[in-house]
Simulated scan of single mutants.
Amino acid sequence: MQTDIDPRSLIGRKAYDRNGHKIGTVDEVYLDDATGVPEWAAVRTGLFSRDAFVPLEPSELAENGLHIPYERALIKDAPDFGVGRHLSPEQELQLYRHYSLALPPAPSESPDTDFGHLAGQ
């Protein structure tokens, strides 16, 4: 997804599955803690329904809404953690697994000072 998009501009947009079927409306956008880049969206799937979390990275924003490259059934079966709360690392891991996404690299504790070990030590 384009990284120069204001996350607030996604809220209220219609969301569509890979076949162009309407899934619902973007309710919330979740940013990556480390980078501040929009990473997940919670899509309200119906008037009395729940929110389905969808990944923004493989999704595309068009004039008519957010197009998510997954089947409607997979999206509607996504874990629902409720909106308005921070996603824990465990919840994010569940979402990565649900969508069969490659896991992001683990952050290094001190990347500037880790030079490895000398052979033989």
Rank of each mutant, 00 (worst) to 15 (best):
G46R: 04
S110E: 10
I11H: 05
G46T: 03
P104N: 03
V83A: 03
T113L: 15
H86R: 12
H86M: 02
D33N: 08
L66C: 05
A102Y: 09
I5F: 08
R85L: 12
S9I: 01
A106H: 11
L31H: 10
Y16A: 05
K22C: 13
T25P: 00
Y16S: 02
E28P: 00
A52H: 00
A119K: 10
D114L: 13
P79T: 03
W40C: 06
T45G: 14
E71L: 08
Q2K: 11
H86F: 03
S88R: 13
A41R: 00
G65R: 00
P69R: 11
E57I: 09
H21A: 09
E60V: 10
Y99R: 10
I68T: 01
G65K: 02
G65Y: 00
P79D: 07
F48S: 01
D17C: 01
I5L: 15
V83R: 05
Q91D: 04
L118K: 09
G116C: 14
T25E: 15
I75V: 15
L93K: 13
G46I: 03
K14L: 15
P55L: 04
P7I: 14
S108C: 09
G36M: 10
L93R: 14
K22I: 14
S108E: 13
R97H: 13
E92H: 05
S9Q: 15
P107W: 08
P107V: 09
L66G: 01
D80T: 05
S100A: 14
P89S: 05
F53T: 00
S110H: 14
I11A: 03
R72E: 08
A41F: 08
L31D: 09
P7E: 12
D51W: 07
V29L: 11
V29I: 15
S9V: 01
G12F: 10
F115I: 04
H86I: 01
L31R: 11
V43E: 08
A119V: 14
S49E: 11
G12R: 05
A34T: 12
E63C: 03
L101T: 08
P111H: 13
T35Q: 07
A106I: 06
I23F: 02
S108Y: 09
F81C: 03
R97Y: 07
L103A: 11
Q2H: 09
G120A: 09
L87P: 02
I5N: 07
E109G: 13
E39R: 15
E92L: 09
Q91R: 08
G116K: 12
Q2I: 02
S9H: 12
G24K: 02
A73G: 07
P38N: 06
D112E: 12
A41D: 04
D77A: 04
P89D: 01
L31P: 01
D32F: 00
L118P: 03
V37W: 07
Q94D: 01
L10F: 07
P79E: 07
P69L: 08
D51V: 12
D77Q: 10
K76D: 04
L118I: 11
P105E: 15
G20E: 06
A73M: 07
N19Y: 13
P58F: 02
L103T: 13
M1E: 01
S49W: 03
M1F: 04
H21C: 03
G46Q: 06
G12P: 14
S100T: 10
P105L: 14
L66H: 03
D33S: 10
D6W: 02
L61G: 00
G36S: 09
S88Q: 11
L61K: 05
R85I: 04
G84I: 02
Q121E: 15
